[in-house]
Design a protein around this nucleic acid. Sequence first.
DNA 1: TAATTATGACGTAAATATACGTCAAGTAAT
DNA 2: ATTACTTGACGTATATTTACGTCATAATTA
Lengths: 114, 114
Amino acid sequence: MVQSKTELFEKELTEMADFFKALSHPARLRILQFLSETKTCITGDISDELSLGRTTVNQHLNELKDLGLIKGETEGVKVNYCLNEATIRKVESQLSGFLATLKTCDTGTKNCKI
Amino acid sequence: MVQSKTELFEKELTEMADFFKALSHPARLRILQFLSETKTCITGDISDELSLGRTTVNQHLNELKDLGLIKGETEGVKVNYCLNEATIRKVESQLSGFLATLKTCDTGTKNCKI
DNA sequence: TAATTATGACGTAAATATACGTCAAGTAAT
DNA sequence: ATTACTTGACGTATATTTACGTCATAATTA
């Protein structure tokens, strides 16, 4: 029992950490950016855009999909990927909310060494 | 040469991803929260607060320090840890800036399957 | 000075993430 | 019907992360 201590933390923190994790790889950021830039639902091989193999990109897509950041709707053989703007807005407010509450002590206060 | 393809992405995306990665673990979020809540510079063992060993916490602290999210100033034997609010604000604006630009296509547009 | 305390450096086992190849199955085109 | 195409499932090698123990070192304290 060396690992997996995440259950020791509050659910909210863990959930937030999961969203940050989804955004912690340049390929996934690029995918989100790409889906947004094209202003369409992209079908099929996004791997042409990134310099990564199809299966790798698919893995990244699934991670984004699992967290609800993108949608992937099957249409025949192909799959249309779109941003899920609802979740993105939720994440945006949750994460910036967290960061916004982080305040340092005021300079001069007891124990404030800044 | 199986990995480390991050150099294939734009520097800006990679830098953002690095910040998000620093925030992708509940222990590190908890540390930031704790440093903020106490409104002081905490000296010494934050591991009392989390249910993690000292060396583990130290590792997390170093990751946060490497990215400039916290400061750790040595004072004798002890070390005072504080939030680095400047960097936190930078990350905050970077994050919301990135997410804010992510827009889906408009419903009804060609290739928009929403 | 000796004991205690605080921290850093180093090593390491287990877990997880990353990148990709291969195969299978379903759909569409010929 | 056969072929080509698109995707998902599975396996896997390598890299990285996580959690921690141990030892070393420097600074206090007794």
